[in-house]
Design a protein around this nucleic acid. Structure first.
Length: 836
RNA sequence: GCGGGUGUGGCGGAAUGGUAGACGCCGGGGACUUAAAAUCCCCUGAGUUCUUACUCGUGUGGGUUCGAGUCCCACCACCCGCACCA
């Protein structure tokens, strides 16, 4: 053979064109084959594909190609999550229109994805900034409005002063904007909301059905939704007003010794009106930080008002405080303080010398046991509580709730941590909210036949803030109801709405509707959804909510969009720094023996921690350069090798070189098929049959690293084996096993071996069940649990035979050294353990 | 603080309670070559050693078992998520 090297620089492109021309990966929804929808989280068009994308899409690609080989009709689409802040930042910095910037990025990234040879159905590609897409989104939003799932109210919002927009609670991390990192301020604005809280219970219950999701993600969502059950009841205040409070521990009600309200509670505000000291205290509370560290150390502070609250059972008057640890936006913004059995109340009561009373004890006889240095929040029996005495915590809860409901002063309720989703953004580059403000008619939805409400093209980014707000011409419209002059809503939808239904649009994209439910039903739910753990709450909760909301208004059959979810790890890289601490990129550094040297200055370089690739640490490796050097298949192989896919993958130059060597090794092996060879090699053939099954299992479990190891093993065995008909079969098997992972090499070798069809259309190899079983096995011989010898025995040998063989071993006899054999444990086909 | 996860060679990592370290990377030695690249072969957990073996070894300490990386109890370290949630 003349060409002893596989040359990806010309083979990759050739096969990519071949697949495209043949429409190999175009999904046919009318196919009779079983359907398989494989989806990776679509990218934001930032401008460049990074290694994280490559890893993510390679995993999905292997699944998609494998499923196709197993006879499925596969939908594996790609598109662009194209709205968002970076486009506006680019507009402000470089004076480019966000749309132009975004489309240029899409073009560049699409070309990059194509060079990696992903099996994508590009016929379904779209960007969420396409008016067709966001127009349908506006229609869905109006449907939700009609169903009562959308409302507008004035609310205190998280205002990001850098991005000059409102953020959802989910987008505030440690008191800072998730994107800008700026300290978030509180502002009161008219905002649009989606009633995600109406679905809180549903979203929580649905988690139980998601067997294919990581427990970790399910748990994170569970905590975020934050269901808690308790009693809501009202105290009578000394001024005649009533104060509703919420508690999860109604059983401890006899231990209550004070009542506290949040600083921004109406009662506190009323008190502050007449009491300057109270007003000062409230101001102090607002200054407090919100970061974890600050909250940790913050002292529980309170202001004792002149008011008191009347205990519903004893009638005792309890002091009413304004307290800094009570949150206005959870429960009712007011609590009953039970110092004995709540740590915060305990600290508070200690500071203000309030009564700390035991109402739960380990045993009735411990009723008078003194309280310790901490509150006791555990289980026990109720004491010092009148009619509750002797009950368990659970019984007492039920009893108090029953009496409150009977007496009409309270009721058992469920409180959620989840808030409604504020979706108003004061930005240009997003879906315009399809509403009109009319002086006479109020807020009026845009009639559906007027959709899409398109973004204006001529916008000015020279001043910060929302260009839509300043665009008089765009804003001016007529009221659909009265026909009078009116103004358009200038807020746009949070970008997370764009990604909340894109998977439906991939499955079906009619012109006149967001999707066709019949077509969607053919593909949904997504069989494998792959992406980063950073979306565990935000995107994945919103997408689940939209799917349920659309199901509720009869547009969908499915309630859960993603049958199984896989969260992949990050791609990491060593970091390099000079003595002065400045970071260096991998190509500025040369390896000199064990050490690293700065190429330019010759200075020594210290190699640091292996961390996520990031621009700031300069440890980014550009996939394009690597593909140019090694070809797509070596990179794909690297992405699948070594690290389990859910863990981080450390990128290394030597690692990719190893992958490159393996590509060439396979190429030489595929060249060694010798049709003149005859004869059997049963042991080798058996290995191949075992690998067919094992690699399939590994791919289905997304254990790509194990599949890779098995292929290495089989390849090594095939290389060493002498020519035979079986060896030819084994080499052809390897060719098919690697096809989903290294598709270009596989096509090239497949064609060279005389095939005229694409291997992408080939079937997964069939195994012979009879060939999975070994006829000889290695038996481990232990003496007192320690390995002394191994021997080969026919499979299925009897226990007696194995025992005899084991005792005949010279090494074993030496170890036993004449001691009396007390017991022999025989595990057939595995081991013999001799106990003396 | 609460919840979850992970600890195995120089590194990434394998291992239904049954031969720990598969497979890959790094490293060492050799072959081929004028030389290099490429390729191929051998070695590669630690220690002792009369090179034949033995001892130790999966974060630490206990336990269950004929047998534990795997199961149980206690602890340590690191990572992730949430957090004055009443």
């Amino acid at each position: 053979m003349t060409d002893t090297r596989f040359d990806p620089s010309q083979a990759d492109g050739r096969w990519q064109r071949a697949w495209e021309e043949a429409g190999t990966f175009t999904a046919n929804s009318d196919s009779d084959k079983p359907k398989s929808y494989i989806l990776e989280m679509f990218p934001y068009p930032s401008g460049r594909i990074h290694m994280g994308h490559v890893r993510n899409y390679t995993m999905g690609d292997v699944l998609a190609r494998y499923k196709k080989m197993r006879g499925a009709e596969v939908l594996h689409p790609m598109g662009w999550d194209a709205f968002g802040m970076p486009a506006e930042n680019a507009a402000m910095e470089k004076g480019v229109h966000p749309g132009k910037w975004t489309h240029a990025n899409i073009d560049a990234m699409k070309a990059q994805l194509k060079r990696i040879g992903f099996a994508l159905d590009w016929t379904r590609e779209f960007a969420t900034c396409d008016p067709e897409y966001y127009g349908h989104e506006q229609a869905l939003f109006l449907d939700m409005y009609e169903a009562g799932m959308v409302y507008r109210r004035s609310s205190e919002v998280n205002w990001d002063p850098v991005d000059m927009t409102v953020l959802a609670n989910e987008q505030v991390i440690d008191g800072k904007g998730w994107r800008s990192g700026a300290e978030v301020e509180k502002r009161k604005l008219d905002q649009w909301f989606l009633k995600i809280t109406d679905f809180a219970g549903d979203l929580l219950d649905g988690l139980e059905t998601l067997d294919g999701w990581p427990d970790k993600v399910r748990l994170m969502q569970e905590n975020w939704i934050g269901k808690s059950q308790g009693l809501e009841f009202s105290f009578e205040l000394s001024d005649g007003e009533t104060l509703p409070v919420y508690t999860t521990r109604p059983d401890t009600i006899f231990g209550a010794s004070f009542v506290a309200v949040a600083a921004d509670h109406p009662v506190a505000q009323a008190v502050a009106k007449d009491d300057p000291l109270a007003a000062t205290f409230i101001e102090e509370c607002k200054k407090g930080g919100t970061t974890a560290a600050e909250l940790e150390t913050m002292e529980k502070l309170g202001f004792r008002t002149q008011l008191s609250a009347r205990h519903p059972f004893t009638g005792d008057a309890m002091p009413l405080f304004i307290a800094n640890f009570v949150l206005m936006d959870y429960g009712t913004g007011a609590v009953m303080g039970v110092p004995g059995h709540d740590q915060r109340d305990f600290e508070f009561a200690t500071k203000y010398e309030l009564l700390i009373r035991r109402v739960v004890a380990s045993d009735a006889s411990e009723a008078d046991a003194p309280m310790g240095e901490e509150a006791e929040s555990g289980d026990g029996v109720i004491v010092n509580s009148d009619f509750l005495d002797g009950m368990s915590v659970e019984e007492a809860k039920a009893e108090v709730i029953a009496r409150a409901e009977g007496g009409g002063w309270g009721k058992g309720t469920t409180v959620w941590r989840l808030r409604d989703w504020g979706i108003s953004r004061q930005r240009y580059w997003g879906t315009p909210i399809p509403f009109i403000h009319c002086e006479t008619c109020g807020i009026v939805p845009v009639p559906k036949d007027q959709l899409p409400v398109k973004l204006p093209e001529d916008v000015d980014f020279s001043i910060p803030g929302n260009p839509l707000e300043r665009h008089a011409e765009w804003k001016a419209t007529t009221c659909p109801k009265c026909g009078g002059a009116a103004q358009r809503e200038t807020d746009t939808l949070d970008t997370f709405t764009n990604s909340s239904w894109y998977f439906l649009r991939f499955a079906s994209q009619p012109d006149d509707a967001p999707f066709d439910p019949v077509e969607v039903a053919k593909w949904m739910p997504v069989e494998h959804y792959i992406g980063g753990i950073e979306h565990a709450i935000l995107h994945l909760l919103y997408a689940r909510f939209w799917t349920r909301a659309l199901a509720k208004i009869g547009k969908l059959e499915v309630k859960e969009p993603f049958a199984s979810l896989f969260t992949q790890g990050m791609v990491t890289h060593e970091t390099y720094a000079l003595g002065d601490g400045s970071w260096l990129s991998p190509d500025e550094v040369r390896k000199d023996g064990e050490d690293y040297v700065h190429i330019e200055s010759g200075q020594p370089v210290t190699s640091g921690r292996v961390v996520k690739m990031s621009k700031s640490k300069k440890n980014v490796v550009d996939p394009d350069n690597i593909i140019a050097d090694y070809g797509a298949d070596a990179v794909r192989w690297f992405m699948l090798s070594d690290s389990p896919p859910e863990r981080d993958l450390p990128w290394s130059e030597s690692g990719i070189e190893g992958c490159w060597r393996f590509v060439q090794r396979l190429w030489r092996l595929f060249d060694q098929i010798d049709d003149s060879a005859s004869g059997e090699d049963k042991a080798l053939a058996r290995k191949a049959h075992q690998a067919i099954v094992a690699v399939a299992e590994d791919i289905e479990a997304l254990s790509f690293n194990k599949a890779v190891a098995r292929i290495y093993e089989l390849t090594g065995a095939a290389e060493k084996a002498p020519p035979s008909a079986d060896r030819n079969f084994v080499i052809r098997t390897i060719l098919h096993l690697i096809a989903p992972m290294m598709p270009h090499l596989a096509e090239e070798a497949h064609a060279k071996l005389g095939a005229d069809a694409l291997i992408a259309d080939a079937a997964w190899p069939k195994h012979d069940p009879a060939m999975l079983v070994e006829d000889e096995v290695t038996i481990a011989i232990q003496h007192k649990g320690k390995l002394r010898d191994t021997l080969t025995a026919p499979k299925g040998a009897s226990k007696d035979d194995l025992e005899a063989l084991a005792l005949a071993s010279e090494k074993v006899q030496r170890s036993i050294d004449g001691a009396a054999v007390r017991k022999v444990i025989v595990v057939p086909d595995r081991l013999v353990n001799i106990v003396t």
